[in-house]
Design a protein around this nucleic acid. Structure first.
Lengths: 201, 201, 201, 201
DNA sequence: CATGAATGAGTGTTCATTCAT
DNA sequence: AATGAATGAACACTCATTCAT
C-alpha cells in the first residue's frame, strides 16, 4: 500500500486529489496571515510544496482557485451546519443542534471562516459564488418558521433572527481567536443562553 | 474663517485638507466595490480627481494612506459610539444610547465599516493600528461592569457580552445592506429587544 | 529650441510621439532578426531605450502594438505606392511609376516588408487588419482595367496580373537582400522589362 | 512487408515512422492556422494524438522538430521540382516541366509552403537549414544557363530570372488560396505565358 | 503644490522540457 | 516506447512609486 496507488491507476497517470488539498490548505493559511489582498500564486505554490506551474494544472487561474475553494468551504460549512438535525423534532432541540454546529464550524475551521469573509468583498468572487452564500439560509428559514408556529420564538422577520444568531456567533469566535481565548463548554453554554434569550418568545 | 487659512500660510501653499477628504472618499467607495485587494493608487487618484503623483504629496505610500484612513475611521466610530453618553445614568439608559450609536454608525457609514473589516486581515495594516481596535472597547468594558453591579445584566465576561452585541449589530446591517432592506424604527426596536433580552439578567 | 517643447505643451505633459517611432523601429529591427515568433516585450522596450512598463503607456498589449505597427506600415506602403501617379496618363507611364514605387518601397523598407509578411500568418493580427491588406489593391485594379481598355496589356483577371507583378518584385528584393546584392539602376530596368513583357498584350 | 518490420527489430520496439508523419501533419496544420509564433508542443502532441512526452522521443526539442520538418519539406519540394526533367531536352520543354512542378507543389502543398516561408525569419531555423534553401536553386541555375546558351531567354543574372519566376508563382498561389480561387488549366496556362514572356529573349 | 509619463520590481500565467511510472 | 503530471525559467503585463517640469 503506497501512495502510488493513488497516482497511477491501471498504469494511467491521474491528477492528484491530495495536491488540491495541499493547495487549499496553503491558501487558507496564507489568507489568514496576510489577507486575500496579500497572497500570490508563487507563495501558494511554495507553501503547498509545488512548482508555480503545477498550480495551473489544477486551477485555470487565481480567480478560479479562489472560487473553487470558496465553493468547497461553503458546501462543507453548509453540510456541517445541519449535521444531526432531524426535521421532526421540537424547535429548541433542532435549534440547539444547529447553533452548536455553526459555532463549532467557526471554531474548528477558523481559517475557512476568515477566507470566506474576505472573499465577499473581493474582485475575485464570481456572481454565482456570491449567490451561493444565501443558499445556506434557506433551510434555516424553514426551521425558524417552525419555531414561530410553535410559538416558542419571537414573530420577527427570519433575516433578523438568523443574522442576530450568526452575527453574534461569528464575532465571539473571531474575538476569542484573535485574543487567544479558549471557548470552553460552560462559556459556550452562556453564549447559547444569550442567543436563546434573544430570540425566545 | 475660510478654508484658505489652511491653504495658504505666510503665502506658502500647504497641503489641502479637502483633498484628503476626496482621497478618503474615493478609497472607501472603491474598497466597497472591489475590495481592498482590487484597488490601485491610480484608481484612487482618478476617482479623487487628482493626478497619481498628488497622492504621494499627502501620503507616503499606499500602506500609509490605508493606515491613516483606518485610524480616522476608527476614531470617528469611537467618538460617535459614545455620543450622548453620560457616565452617571442607569445602565439601561446608557446601553440604549450606545447601542443605537453603534447601529447608526454602521448604517450611516457602511463603506467605512466594510473598509475596516477588510483591513483587519490585510498586509497593509500596521500593528499599532490593529491594536487601536481594542481601545474602543475599554469604555464599553466599564459600562458593562456598571450593568453587572446594578445586577441588570448577566454576570458574564465582558468580551462575551460585547461581541454578542456588536456581532449581531454588524451582521444585521451587513445583511440589510446587501439585500437592499431598510432598517426602520420598529425593526430597530425589535433588534434592540433581542440584544437586551440576550444580556439581561 | 529643445526637446521639451514636444514633451510639455503649455505646462501639460504630453505623450511622446517620438517614443512611438522608437518602439516601431525597435520592433521592426527585432522581427527582421528573430522573427515575429521570437520577440518579447522586454526586448522591444530595451531596444527602444525604454522601461517595460512604458511600452504599455503607448500600447495596450503586444497584440495592440503589432496591429498598430501593421496598420501604420500598410498605410505608408499604400501611400508610397501611388506617389506621382496621375489618373489621366497613359497606362504604361502610370504602371512604370507605380512599379518603381512598389520596388523602392520594398528596397527602402525591407524591415517593414518582412514584418508585414510575417504578420499575415500570425495569431496576433486582427481580422480588421487582415482585411486592410486588400485595400491597397483596389486602385491597382482600376489601373489595370485602364490598361486592358487601352489594349496594351493582356485581358487577364486583375488578380493574376497584380500578383504576378508584386510577387516577382517581392521575391527579387528578398533574394537581393538576403544575399547582399545591390539592385542598381540597370538591373532594375531589366526587372521592369521582365514584368512589362509578362503582362503586355 | 508490413509496418511491423519497422516497429519491432529483434523484439525491441523502435521509433514509429507513422508517428513522425502525424507529428509533421499536425505541425503544418497548426502553423497554417496560427503561425509559427502561435504553436506549442502541447498542441502539436494533442493534434497528433500523442502525449507531450512522446514528442520528445522523436525530436530532441521544438527547434529540432521544426528543423527536421523544414528539411523534409525542402527536400520533397526539390525532388518534385525536377520530376520528369531530363537534362538533354531543349530549354523551353524543361522549363515548362519544372515551372508546372513548382506551381503544383505550391498548390498541392500549401501548408508546407506557408511553413517554409514562416521559418525563414524564425529564431528556430539553424544556419545549416537556412542554407539548404539555396541548394534547390543550383540545378535551376544550370538550366537557365542552358536557356541563355540556346539564346531563347534573356541574358540576365540567374538570380533575377529565378526569383522572377518563383516569386510570381508563390504570390499567385498564395492569393488564390487566401481568396478561395481555384487555379484551372487555362488560368495556369495564362500564368505560364506571363512568366515565359517575361524571360524569353 | 500639482502633474502624469516614466520606471522596474513583481504579478499571474505559459510552455518547452523532464521523469517516474 | 509511451504517458502526462510536474517543473521552473521566461513571458506579458501591472502598479506603487518617482521626478522633471
Amino acid at each position: 500500500m503506497n501512495e502510488y496507488l493513488f497516482t497511477y491507476i491501471c498504469g494511467v497517470k491521474v491528477k492528484d486529489q491530495s495536491k488540491i488539498e495541499h493547495i487549499y490548505d496553503a491558501t487558507l493559511k496564507l489568507v489568514k496571515t496576510k489577507g486575500l489582498a496579500g497572497i500570490t500564486m508563487n507563495e501558494i505554490a511554495a507553501s503547498a510544496g509545488l512548482a508555480t506551474g503545477t498550480l495551473y494544472i489544477y486551477f485555470d487561474s487565481k480567480e478560479d482557485l479562489i472560487n473553487a475553494l470558496f465553493s468547497t468551504c461553503k458546501q462543507a460549512s453548509e453540510q456541517i451546519c445541519f449535521q444531526g438535525y432531524n426535521e421532526g423534532e421540537p424547535f429548541k432541540n433542532s435549534f440547539r443542534t444547529i447553533w452548536h454546529n455553526l459555532l463549532n464550524y467557526r471554531i474548528d475551521n477558523f481559517k475557512e471562516a476568515v477566507f470566506m469573509d474576505q472573499c465577499c468583498h473581493s474582485p475575485f468572487l464570481t456572481e454565482t459564488n456570491k449567490e451561493l452564500t444565501s443558499n445556506i439560509l434557506h433551510p434555516l428559514f424553514k426551521l425558524f418558521e417552525q419555531g414561530k408556529q410553535e410559538g416558542v420564538i419571537k414573530a420577527l422577520d427570519n433575516f433578523l433572527l438568523i443574522t442576530f444568531i450568526t452575527g453574534s456567533i461569528h464575532e465571539v469566535v473571531k474575538y476569542a481567536h484573535s485574543h487567544g481565548k479558549k471557548l470552553t463548554g460552560p462559556v459556550i453554554e452562556d453564549i447559547f443562553e444569550m442567543c436563546w434569550n434573544g430570540i425566545k418568545a
